[in-house]
Design a protein around this nucleic acid. Structure first.
Lengths: 212, 212
DNA sequence: CGTGGGGTTGACTCAAGTCAATTTGGGTGG
DNA sequence: CCACCCAAATTGACTTGAGTCAACCCCACG
């Protein structure tokens, strides 16, 4: 069912919008973004995906991938043939349950982002974003306070519903206030408590280990 | 598996956030909203659900309902016991596939809303909202151009990431421009082409029969 | 009949977008 | 190895769309 690992260079497409759906993919190492190209040419980022996360589940409903998946750094992927997975999950109830949980979790995550996009302001969005990345790195055994962003300011902005200038300005403000230290893609969270306070003031629950 | 229909009066809770998950629910007649209560007391609407749609799938991942589901008018519900559904879908591959499609479709819909919230402005959001409702009514054999809103301006705003005043103002503007006719909850779409143009200018694909 | 929740409208404010100028830094080819 | 180049990032000045606050209307309902 799980084919051999495949590797993808930075910038390579795992799949493209419009392609026929056959498999979902588990990120083994590296970092991906998923994004849809809008009619007017702009790109909307729908998610960032790191080690251990599953990509491609949004294609099950139509058998067509609705978005692109692009490696943001050299990455390794496990392809999971979906109809084989379905077959197997018929015989293994716990696998079946696990699959359903994963699908459902994706829905919950999306609701979290809807919340963020619908009711938070720029600083809160960025704080939520950084804390979420931090948690996900921590859960994978990396530093929770110091990491490299794999994506551009524009991609962050697209994901968070902000313009790249706003992302940049907000990072600068956080740095000025001593919450973080940024230089280019490398980030250090210097005062997580304060970052959480930025979030907390507007009241948004961030799922613990979840991609927001 | 499918228990007898249950009825819910307007304002009644189908389930509440925090309750244990056991079943998903198919709306037979009526209209529901799902919403989460934020820490600060405000409510965030995550969806509106009408005849034929399934509610509660976001609870599969944790076995706890993450949001409330509330009837916006007198409604009938079919409860679907989820572990029985899983059991059955082990024996009926087409049912299994159908379930997966439904779960995946929910993800796709959420991505659509993320798009809306992240990149559209007020008029575009409202136009998308109205056209989406119109499509869903049409798909169920009701008029696509004339219907009653079941929700308040505040609930629409919460769903679309706008304040109720903005919703009201934008309706008024649409009316002034001859795109729609509103009085209170009753809406008539008078110029769908123009409404689609409002959408089109920013470039957002609206799924055909999908709840956005 | 009141009363109150839902809705509309206006005046004002401000957060974020836009436009533009500059700096930085990584990658490439000579 | 260096110089150049271009994409990414930063910062400033200005604009604007939507939020805020407030007054008011209008039914529906007790």
């Amino acid at each position: 069912m799980v084919s051999a690992k495949q590797t993808f260079k930075r910038g390579a497409y795992l799949y493209r919008a419009g392609e026929h759906f056959q498999s979902i993919y588990a990120v083994r190492t590296g970092f991906f973004k998923t994004a849809t190209l809008l009619d007017d040419g702009r790109e909307q980022v729908t998610g960032f995906h790191m080690m251990g996360e599953i990509i491609g589940m949004d294609a099950i409903s139509t058998d067509i991938h609705p978005c692109d998946a692009i490696a943001l750094e050299d990455s390794e992927i496990c392809e999971i043939h979906f109809s084989q997975l379905e077959q197997l999950s018929r015989d293994i109830p716990t696998l079946q349950r696990h699959l359903h949980r994963i699908l459902s979790r994706e829905i919950v995550r999306d609701h979290g982002i809807m919340l963020l996009l619908g009711s938070m302001k720029a600083e809160e969005r960025l704080a939520a974003f950084l804390l979420n990345l931090s948690q996900r790195f921590a859960a994978r055994g990396y530093s929770s306070s110091s990491f490299n962003l794999r994506m551009t300011r524009e991609e962050i902005g697209s994901y968070l519903g902000l313009k790249l200038e706003t992302v940049s300005r907000t990072f600068s403000k956080f740095q000025k206030d001593g919450l973080i230290s940024v230089q280019n893609r490398s980030i250090e969270l210097q005062d997580m408590v304060a970052l959480k306070r930025v979030l907390g003031q507007q009241g948004c629950a961030t799922g613990k280990n979840d991609r927001i």
